[in-house]
Amino acid sequence: MNRLFDRIQRRMPPFAARWLEWLRKPEARIVRIPLGILFVCGGLLSFLPVLGIWMLPLGLLLLALDLVFLQGPINTAILRGTRKWTTWSRKRRDKKAAR
């Protein structure tokens, strides 16, 4: 789980990476759990204009830091999604190169 957060953190802008780094600390648990629940609820209400489906995985990631039973499924989902994204982008790149 920490390796996945490290990878996400490296790809973020510096101000957001600092915020995520603070949020990952054990003492931020009081903020992390309610924030994760709010993000999941916001993801479920993604049909509203301001909220989006992007909030659901972020909320689940935050909750998985504290809820052990979520860590396995979240890790599996992230790894599968990463593999599918890589496969899709390679196929797309190969199609462009073939033209």
Rank of each mutant, 00 (worst) to 15 (best):
M1P: 11
N2C: 01
R3D: 15
R3E: 12
R3H: 10
L4Q: 06
F5S: 00
D6N: 03
D6P: 00
D6E: 12
I8E: 04
I8D: 00
I8Y: 06
Q9G: 06
Q9W: 02
R10H: 09
R10V: 02
R10Y: 01
R11D: 02
R11E: 10
M12K: 06
M12L: 15
M12W: 07
P13C: 00
P13Q: 12
P14L: 10
F15E: 12
F15H: 13
F15R: 14
F15N: 09
A16Q: 05
A16P: 01
A17L: 02
W19G: 07
W19P: 01
E21I: 01
E21D: 15
E21T: 14
W22I: 09
W22M: 10
W22G: 04
L23G: 02
R24A: 03
K25W: 05
K25M: 11
K25T: 12
A28Y: 14
R29A: 11
R29E: 10
I30T: 14
R32A: 10
R32E: 03
I33R: 08
G36K: 03
I37K: 08
I37T: 12
V40E: 00
V40Q: 07
C41W: 02
C41F: 14
G42R: 03
G42F: 14
G42V: 04
G43V: 10
G43R: 08
L44E: 09
L45S: 14
L45P: 02
L45N: 13
S46Y: 12
F47R: 12
F47L: 08
L48T: 15
L48C: 08
L51G: 03
G52D: 05
G52H: 05
G52Q: 08
I53S: 14
I53L: 14
W54G: 09
M55V: 00
L56M: 13
L56S: 11
P57F: 07
P57D: 07
L58Q: 00
L58A: 13
L58H: 00
G59F: 06
G59E: 06
L60S: 01
L61A: 07
D66Q: 04
V68M: 01
V68A: 12
L70K: 11
L70T: 03
Q71R: 15
Q71D: 09
G72H: 04
G72R: 13
P73S: 08
P73N: 03
P73A: 02
I74H: 06
N75H: 01
T76A: 13
T76Y: 05
I78V: 15
I78F: 13
L79G: 01
L79W: 04
L79N: 10
L79A: 08
R80K: 12
R80P: 01
G81C: 06
G81T: 05
T82H: 03
R83L: 13
R83S: 05
K84P: 00
W85I: 03
W85N: 01
W85C: 04
T87P: 00
T87N: 11
T87L: 14
T87K: 12
W88I: 02
R90F: 07
R90L: 14
K91T: 09
K91R: 15
R92Y: 05
R93M: 09
R93I: 05
D94Y: 06
D94T: 11
K96T: 09
A97C: 04
A97N: 06
A98E: 13
A98F: 00
